[in-house]
Computed example of a mutant assay.
Amino acid sequence: MLTKKLKWPIYHIFVSALALAMVYPVLWLLMSSFKQSNLIFATADSLIPQPWIWENYKIGWIGIAGQSFGNFIMNSLEIVVLATIGAVLSSAFIAFGFARLNFTGKTFWFAIMMVTLMLPHDVVLVPQYILFAKIDWLNSIKPIVIPQYFGIPFFIFLLIQFIRTIPNELDEAATIDGCGKFRLFFRIILPLVVPALATASIFSFYWRWEDLLGPVLYLNRPSLYPVSMGLKMFLDSDTVSNWGAMFAMSIVSLIPVLAIFFAFQKYIVEGISTSGLK
C-alpha cells in the first residue's frame, strides 16, 4: 500500500523535472531577450535580466537592412500558405490515386515514391539548383513553393494509409449514384480525410516556417527574406552581433507556431491514429 502511495508523487516529480528540462531552453531564450547583448552569455547561468532591456523588441521589430521584421513575417506567411496549399492538395490527389485507382505500373511508381521518401534531401540540392538556375527561377520564392505542388512523399504515404481505412463500399455506393472519380474524391474521400489533411498542413507549416536552407540558396534580396533569414541577419561575423534583438524576434516568430499548435494539436494524433470511418 505504501508503494502505491509513493508511486504518484515520484511519477509526477519525475515528469515535472523532465518537462522543466525540455522547457528550460525556451525559458532561457525568453529571459535572454530582455538582457543587454553583451551580458547574455556573460550571465548565461542567471535567468533574471539585470537590467530589463525592453528596447530589444523595438529594435528587433524595426529590422535590419532597411526591412522591418514585420516584412520578414509577411514573406514567411506567403511562402507557408502557398507551399502548404500545394503540398496538401497535391499529396491528397496522389494518395487517392495510389489507394483507390488501378493503373499500369502502380507498384513501380509507389516504390519510386517510397525511395524518394528515404532519399536524403541534400542529395538533390545541386541538381535542383542547376535546374532552377536554367529556368531563371533564382531570387524568387518559386523554387521554394512550386515543387510543393508535385506531392510530398511523407504526406502521400500518410494519406494513403488513412484512405485505405475508408470502406470501399462507400466508393461503390457513390459510383452507383453516378459519381465519377473526381466527384468521388471531392465529395466522399476528401471530407473523410480532414484529420489527415490537417496533420499534413500542420507539418508543412512547421517545415516551411523554420526552413533556412531554401531561402539561403535561392533568395538574394532582403525584401524577399523570410523569418529564418531575417533572424540570421542579426548575426554579423565582422561586427558586433545583436543577440538581444535576435532573441526578441525569435520569441515573436514563435507566436504563430505556438498558435497553430494549440489550435490544431488534436489533429496531429487524430490524423495518424484514427480511421477515416465516421
Rank of each mutant, 00 (worst) to 15 (best):
T3C: 00
K7S: 11
P9N: 07
Y11E: 13
S16P: 02
A21Q: 07
A21N: 05
Y24Q: 03
W28L: 09
W28T: 05
Q36F: 02
A42I: 12
T43P: 00
A44H: 10
D45N: 11
Q50S: 15
Q50F: 11
P51R: 03
W54R: 06
N56C: 07
K58T: 13
I59G: 05
I59T: 13
G60W: 05
I64D: 12
S68F: 09
I73D: 00
M74R: 11
V81A: 13
S90W: 00
F93H: 03
I94L: 10
A99H: 05
A99E: 05
L101D: 10
N102F: 08
T107D: 14
F110L: 14
F110S: 09
I112C: 12
T116M: 09
T116Q: 09
L117R: 10
M118R: 03
M118P: 03
P120A: 02
D122G: 02
L125I: 13
F132K: 01
K134A: 13
W137S: 08
W137L: 06
I141T: 09
P143H: 05
I146V: 15
I152D: 14
F155T: 03
I156R: 04
L158H: 03
I160A: 08
I160C: 09
Q161Y: 03
Q161M: 03
L170C: 06
D177H: 09
C179K: 10
R183I: 05
F186M: 06
F186D: 01
R187M: 07
I189L: 04
V194I: 15
F205M: 11
L212D: 01
L213C: 00
G214M: 10
Y218N: 00
L219C: 02
L219M: 08
Y225E: 14
S228A: 14
M229R: 13
M233C: 05
S237R: 14
V240W: 05
S241F: 10
W243T: 05
F247C: 06
S250Q: 03
L254N: 11
F264S: 06
Q265A: 06
V269R: 14
E270H: 02
G271Q: 04
L277H: 04
